[in-house]
């Protein structure tokens, strides 16, 4: 009887795993089939106005890159504070809980919030608003990753550093961060991969444009928003372009995730 239950459990869990894989494969195959038709060197050298995606790629990575450039240092320092300085204080616990809540906040809510506080006063969608929305999305992820990874570093290592006469900040920046380096790096890559594929926070903030744009105070090109726009166009060529853009974005995010996973596997200790 127990054997039978065991077999049923194995069968059911295998079945659901296969089901998940089937859908994943389906998505990937569809993406590749539909995306590859429009895929050509041409689209990388032309902007959307000329049926290319150059400006979209540029826009997406500038938005995500600048959001990371602000979000990573701020999040790192906050994570360090939580684990190394404020640990077990009510303030730190509050911030920690808040980060958890923020992490599960729907991204459209964050987009709407930024729309209300930046886009409406400015009067039109702009790059800074997009960066702000992605920053708000990314910050709690970076904070919690840093916090978690630092918590894995054994207490003895901190004490050993202090015990040979190192000031606390020195122990944190030269010993503890080094010990948690791989984990934190992985977390940062995954956080970037997370925001680079986001649509909802950008929909009302950066918007998107068919032209190349270098000024962040203007409506800024965004690949994800444009995929959304193009997909609803009647022109089949443009829909095919949307598929190509989706394929490229998927490959980029997948690659980032794989790098992250690879780092985790490679970590020692």
């Amino acid at each position: 009887m127990r054997l039978l239950v065991n077999k049923i459990a194995i069968a059911l869990s295998s079945l659901t795993a296969i089901l998940g894989l089937i859908f994943l494969g389906w998505i990937l195959i569809t993406l590749i089939l539909k995306g590859s038709t429009a895929l050509s060197p041409y689209i990388f050298t032309h902007d959307l106005v000329n049926n290319g995606i150059r400006n979209l790629l540029w826009g997406q990575f500038v938005l995500a890159g600048l959001a990371s450039a602000i979000g990573i240092p701020v999040g790192l320092l906050a994570g360090i504070y939580l684990q190394e300085y404020g640990n077990h204080t009510r303030y730190a616990d509050f911030i920690r809980d808040l980060s958890d809540v923020m992490m599960s906040a729907p991204s459209i809510v964050i987009g709407t919030f930024i729309y209300a506080i930046i886009v409406i006063p400015v009067g039109h969608t702009n790059g800074w608003a997009g960066i702000a929305a992605l920053f708000v999305m990314m910050l709690p992820i970076v904070v919690r990753t840093t916090d978690d990874m630092l918590s894995l570093v054994p207490t003895e290592l901190r004490e050993a550093g202090i015990a040979i006469g190192a000031p606390k900040y020195h122990v944190i920046f030269h010993i503890i961060l080094k010990a948690a380096k791989v984990g934190i790096m992985t977390g940062l890559i995954l956080a970037f991969a997370r925001i680079v594929g986001e649509t909802a926070p950008l929909l009302y903030t950066s918007g998107s444009t068919i032209y190349m744009e270098t000024s962040l105070s203007q409506t800024f090109p965004s690949m994800t928003v444009s995929i959304y726009n193009l997909a609803t166009m009647p022109d089949e060529k443009l829909v095919a372009l949307a598929w190509a853009a989706a394929l490229i974005l998927t490959i980029a995010v997948l690659a980032l995730n794989l790098i992250g996973r690879f780092l985790i596997k490679d970590r020692r200790l």
Binding site: P154, E156, L157, A160, A179
Partner: peptide, 10 residues
């Protein structure tokens, strides 16, 4: 001070 568990720095 020397601790119970070896604590080499990374």
């Amino acid at each position: 001070m020397v601790f119970q568990k070896p604590t080499p720095f990374p």
